[in-house]
Design a protein around this nucleic acid. Structure first.
Lengths: 162, 162
DNA sequence: GTTGAAAGAGGCGCAGC
DNA sequence: GCTGCGCCTCTTTCAAC
């Protein structure tokens, strides 16, 4: 059982919006002295709640301007078929997100590519070759209005029962 | 006009998968000495290609287990209506992503909430109150199969014309 | 929980190639 | 463009309260 108080939530909130600050600075922002602040961050890392730090790269500045949502239906929905599909897309770098969905269609992918040609190539040479797919439907994003990695955190503490 | 060579791409690739390494370690991985490596990172930051570092927080461990895709249609699609909608969701923390879409429906949102009750509350007290919405349709994710923040980078260099 | 001290590492700038 | 040197700040650990 894991317990997080308001200060823990506050630390997570700070770090998920900017991980580039020093421990000294972080401790000020959460009204703690450096040592306990450092210990809490270590604890959150050991619990697996803090999952590492990453640099965010601007997709637009690298010419990665085409976000496509691909809806996929399978012929069957047994465990075998799901594993087969998930394994096939696991190492494709252009697949940013993949969800197993309820409703008519089985999977929803967000694919990020530089242009339509790259999308066509991805669909033909990778997606279409996966066994068990019955239908592929693509919707294009005209604009990415919002994208964030910061989770919506509660203002109060949390008790997480394992 | 911005030029990135293979080493720049390599730096971006390293940092977007792990931003917690020291400059000394990074320089080894990209086969550079520390100083020019440091200067390249600074340049990438100044160009706005590197957009800061963030800590990734585990949604599942905080009980944020419900990913919902909400498709939204507007009555009109003029600039006024789009601005109104985008402004209304801009400060909602549960809206992780928002795309202006081609096709039948106008917007696609990914919303992250702890449970269905929170989703209902979000739709009733926030979404439904926005003027100009003609239809709201939700699809639930049964499982997040994949989620990553690392962009698909080219193996060769890039020339970006401004 | 807090402070303070001390060692070791890394950031960051400079001089020279 | 590269390397090597050096200061200085920060992290990180410790003992003590």
């Amino acid at each position: 059982m894991v317990k997080l108080d308001k200060v823990d939530i506050s630390i997570l909130s700070q770090l998920q919006s900017n991980a580039d600050i020093t421990n000294a600075e972080l401790s000020k922002r959460v009204n703690l002295s450096p040592t306990p602040c450092f210990n809490r961050v270590k604890r959150l890392e050991e619990l697996g709640i803090l999952n590492g730090k990453v640099a965010l790269v601007s997709a637009g500045m690298l010419g990665l301007n085409v976000n496509v949502f691909i809806h996929i239906s399978l012929e069957k929905q047994d465990e075998e078929a799901l594993k087969c599909f998930e394994g096939a897309i696991a190492d494709r770098p252009e697949v940013m997100e993949c969800y197993l969905m309820s409703g008519e269609e089985d999977y929803l992918l967000r694919v990020l590519v530089p242009d339509i040609q790259s999308l066509e190539k991805f669909i033909l040479t990778h997606l279409a070759k996966i066994h068990g797919i019955s239908n592929i439907r693509s919707s294009f994003a005209l604009k990415q209005v919002r994208y964030k990695t910061s989770l919506p955190l509660p203002e109060t503490g949390l008790t997480i029962v394992d």
